[in-house]
Design a binder for these strands. Structure first.
Length: 506
RNA sequence: CGGGGUGUAGCUCAGCCCGGCUAGAGCACUAGUUUUGGGAACUAGGGGUCGGAGGUUCAAAUCCUCUCACCCCGACCA
């Protein structure tokens, strides 16, 4: 390999951001494309991140009173027809099962045994869960009903990208039913807060909580709330959504209850979800030109110990020393779990090992050789510093201080991401000329990274949406935090009071 | 589904326009030697239905027809 190459990932972010993203995913062995169009294989390192995220989110979902359950992968076609706008939103991207048997004919397998009613593979589960809810809810005493499921869903997207948009993806979807609108709205916000907390504290991704404009709402929802994050190409990523569904789905699925007063009422429902897309967001928030950087709280392994063996006769002693460090570290805990250590004993060159782990984004690398045994020390490399930025650290200091070090790295990642985002939120753009200039690349043949977030006033009229569409800019959200000031819409120039976040988006 | 492009080794590709020896390169892989606090060097080696089917020809990776898959740009999106 070329030693003059100063970064492990080629191209670098500023050269070709989408290609850089793909190379990071590949180099870190997170996932790969599969034989099935649009569907990915999540490899162990990537799945390990998902499991850690899942565990920490699941805990908070349960702490807020929800229970996990599981509903069918297949949904009768007729269920989807029950909610008019829901149909419109999802019908175009549904995988449909029409047969239940294969027969060999002329050496080929052909589907036979047509189903009376086709089944769709769930793109989301409101309708099938609603069917259960309608039987589970009879009285106001059955409410609230607070259910979550971890599942895979399928949306037959035209264009896919690993983690960010795949035809099949993993997620959790919460579904709740309440006696009053107030309580359901409260639930919607509560789960939005849970998402924001997990994404910021666990994935170290700063987010903006807000409300979607009507055009961007979940099909069938009364209100959709979201958390929006900024990627390193300054585009927005919707990182999670929480929907207040009003009585729309309760009416469609017949979720009724007898109130304390003896009247029959429709329940108010909510739904909320986050997906494996968050891993894509984590990559695009933290990875650099040397590959992935995983926030310690979701890293499948926190530390790799790389034995340095200059001569074969030193091997046994070095490995023994490496294992003793690993054993001591494993007795320590970080973020509620034992510190995860891997001793990389593979018979390949040390430099190759180091760079492999750098690209995989492991938080800490420890290198130990014969000289370190005598001095009872090791060489420490942190992924939040440069690849050659090494520090000697004593055995006891390393073991006792590791948890605090991981915590510091977790915070560093968040602070770095937050500083980057805040530096790229423009609040000074007041007219459309400046707005359009900000979102237009200077080199149209090969657009450079440009634009960012604009925080400005939004009037909400249809003509304005049209102008945004031409720029490929969207209203990401109306932030929950509003200034309350009077001003003019950055698109139309007409008087407006609402603050909105504008950006190009994934 | 519209416009453009690509299918040749595990990966990235050359060869195709202008048909012709046993189909090539780099990386990766295997073995050996040297090197060793660092993304090594040399030598030898393994690996290919040239996306698939049909056609033209003495001869097809190369020309023709059909077909499948994927990628990029649009419309759609967690």
């Amino acid at each position: 390999m070329n030693k003059k190459e100063t970064s492990a990932i080629s191209p670098r972010r500023e050269e070709d951001y989408p290609e850089w993203y793909q190379q990071v995913v590949r180099a870190a062995e997170l996932a790969e494309n599969s034989a099935v169009r649009g569907c990915m294989v999540i490899k162990p390192w990537g799945y390990g991140i998902w499991e850690n995220l899942q565990r920490q989110l699941d805990r908070r979902i349960k702490e807020t009173g929800h229970s996990n359950a599981y509903f069918p992968l297949f949904i009768p076609l007729s269920f989807l027809e029950k909610e008019a706008s829901h149909v419109e939103g999802f019908a175009k991207e549904c995988a449909v099962v029409t047969h239940h048997r294969l027969e060999a004919r002329d050496g080929k397998l052909v589907p036979v045994g047509e189903l009376d009613e086709p089944l769709i593979v769930r793109p989301t589960s409101e309708t099938i869960i609603g069917e259960s809810f309608s039987r589970w809810v009879q009285s106001y005493r059955d409410l609230p009903l607070l259910i979550n499921q971890w599942a895979n869903v399928v949306r037959w997207e035209m264009r896919t990208r690993l983690f960010l948009r795949t035809a099949e993806f993993l997620w959790q979807e919460g579904h709740t039913a309440h006696a009053t609108a107030e309580e359901a709205v409260e639930e919607t916000f509560k789960m939005l807060d849970v998402y924001a907390e997990v994404v910021e504290n666990v994935l170290a991704m700063p987010v903006i909580k807000g409300e979607k404009i009507p055009e961007e709402r979940f099909p069938g929802a009364v209100d959709t709330y979201c958390i929006e994050a900024m990627m390193q190409d300054r585009k927005a990523l919707q990182a999670g959504t929480s929907h207040f569904l009003g009585q729309n789905f309760a009416k469609a699925s017949d979720i009724k209850f007898l109130s304390r007063e003896g009247t029959t009422e429709y329940a108010y429902t909510t739904s909320w979800g986050v997906s494996t897309r968050l891993i894509g967001g984590m990559i695009m928030t933290h990875a650099d030109d040397d590959g992935l950087r995983i926030p310690p709280k979701v890293a499948p392994k926190h530390i790799v110990i790389i034995p340095v063996i200059p001569k074969p006769e030193t091997e046994a002693a070095v490995l023994e020393y490496a294992e003793s460090i690993a054993a001591a570290l494993r007795l320590k805990s970080y973020n509620g779990v034992s510190i995860e250590v891997v001793v990389d004993k593979r018979d390949i060159r040390g430099g190759d090992k180091s760079w492999e782990w750098i690209k995989k984004g492991i938080p800490v690398r420890l290198e130990v050789g014969p000289r370190d045994i005598e001095n009872k020390q090791m060489v420490l490399y942190r992924r939040d510093k440069g690849p050659r930025d090494k520090a000697f650290i004593g055995f006891n200091d390393a073991v006792e201080g590791m948890s605090a070090l991981l915590d510091e790295m977790q915070n560093n990642y968040f602070e770095q991401a937050k500083a980057f985002r805040d530096a790229n939120i423009r609040r000074d753009i007041k007219d459309f000329a400046a707005f359009a200039a900000y979102f237009t690349p200077k080199n149209t043949d090969k657009p450079e990274i440009h634009g960012g977030f604009v925080l400005g006033k939004w009037s909400g009229d249809a003509a304005a949406l049209e102008k945004l569409n031409e720029l490929k800019v969207t209203v990401r959200c109306i932030p929950l935090e509003q200034s309350g000031t009077q001003g003019v819409c950055v698109v139309t120039g007409t008087p407006a009071t609402k603050d909105a976040i504008f950006a190009k988006a994934y």
